[in-house]
């Protein structure tokens, strides 16, 4: 029970980061924390082989590429400064 609560807390920390942080790198890190939280939840409930580590890795790779492209095209990593699309 306590370990489930811990997993839940881990997920909530990730979600807090996604909602509150403005630095894009931080947002990506928060998403990864959420992924690790879900993965550890799967381990706890009995999915004790493989996990979803490879999917987390793929998401990281794409996110990393997007971070680089954001900095190159916008010149900033502040999520609030991405204002190209509105309305």
């Amino acid at each position: 029970m306590i370990s489930y609560l811990g997993c839940f807390g881990l997920f909530m920390i990730g979600l807090y980061g996604v909602m509150v942080k403005r630095h894009i790198y931080k947002i990506v890190i928060s998403v990864l924390i959420m992924e690790f939280a879900v993965d550890s939840f799967l381990v706890l409930i009995g999915n004790r082989k493989w996990g979803t580590a490879l999917i987390v890795l793929s998401a990281t790779l794409i996110a990393a590429a997007i971070i680089i492209r954001v900095q190159e095209s916008f010149g900033t990593l502040d999520a609030d400064e991405l204002k190209e699309l509105k309305g």
Binding site: F11, L15, V18, I24, I27, V28, V31, M34, E35, V38, F41, L42, T52, A59, I62, A63, I66, R69, V70, S73, F74, L82, E84, L85
Partner: peptide, 24 residues
């Protein structure tokens, strides 16, 4: 270009969050 990258970033973050809800 800028618009595409911004859209992809938003899509990535929201889409991954959705995927994680589904996975839980």
């Amino acid at each position: 270009r800028r618009a595409e990258i911004e859209a992809a970033f938003k899509y990535l973050i929201l889409g991954e969050t959705a995927s994680l809800f589904i996975l839980i």
